[in-house]
Simulated assay, not measured.
Amino acid sequence: MLSALEVVTTVVVGVMVGVEFAVAFVLNPILDALPGDSGQLGRAHGGRMLGAVMPVWYLASLALVAVWSFAGRHHHGTALVVTAGGLLLLSVLMSVLLLVPINNRGKTWTPENRPADWKEQMNRWDRLHHVRVAVIIAAFTLLVTALV
């Protein structure tokens, strides 16, 4: 049973990392290169769509890691799993305190109502998101290492 939990947790966290990596290094650069207001409209739509899904995904990942930490507390690699859980908790705190407020504003913007500093706000979100991606990649790496 523990092996199944380890695999499911690693896959769930790994796919989340892949999505967040793609947003940071593929999707947003593509949107930013689009002409006119297309990029800003795409970011607003993405903010609404992913803003609804990602909180559940982050919390489910954190919960799975917590269960793995408890269920495997007497097994090899538990310290790695606990550390990964701490990093995932850090990513949730970063999200709630730093990224979500910007996203909540950005997902409502249109070319007609966006603030003058909207690009600066999106650049700040991107920088913070890059840090968050590094944190969740580290967590994922620890989970994979705990498996071997």
Rank of each mutant, 00 (worst) to 15 (best):
V96H: 13
N103V: 06
E112M: 11
L87D: 01
S95H: 12
E120T: 10
G85L: 01
A116P: 11
W118D: 00
G85C: 02
I102W: 07
E120F: 11
N113Q: 04
T110Y: 07
E120P: 07
P101W: 08
P115F: 00
E112W: 11
E112C: 11
G106L: 05
K119T: 14
W109Y: 03
L98G: 13
N104V: 06
R105A: 10
P115M: 00
E112Y: 10
R114W: 00
D126I: 13
M122A: 13
V100T: 08
R105S: 09
G85P: 01
M122E: 07
S91E: 03
K107T: 07
N113K: 02
N104S: 08
E120H: 10
A116V: 12
V100D: 04
K107Q: 10
K119L: 15
W118M: 01
S95A: 14
N123M: 12
L87Y: 03
A116D: 15
L90E: 07
L97W: 15
R105K: 14
K119G: 13
S91A: 10
T108M: 15
D117S: 04
Q121L: 08
L93V: 12
T110I: 08
E120D: 12
M122N: 09
N113P: 01
K119E: 13
I102A: 10
N103D: 09
N123H: 14
W109F: 01
M94N: 15
S95E: 12
Q121E: 10
A116G: 15
E120R: 11
L87R: 02
S95F: 11
Q121F: 04
L98H: 14
R114D: 00
S91F: 04
L87P: 02
Q121C: 07
L98Q: 15
R124H: 12
N113D: 03
L87N: 02
V92K: 04
L87S: 03
T110V: 08
A116F: 12
L98P: 10
I102L: 12
V96E: 12
N123R: 13
G106Q: 05
D117N: 06
N123I: 13
M94F: 14
V100Q: 04
K107D: 07
N113A: 03
I102R: 05
V92E: 06
T108R: 13
D117L: 01
G85N: 01
T108V: 15
P115Y: 00
S95N: 13
S95P: 08
Q121P: 05
M122V: 12
D117T: 01
Q121N: 10
E112S: 11
K119R: 13
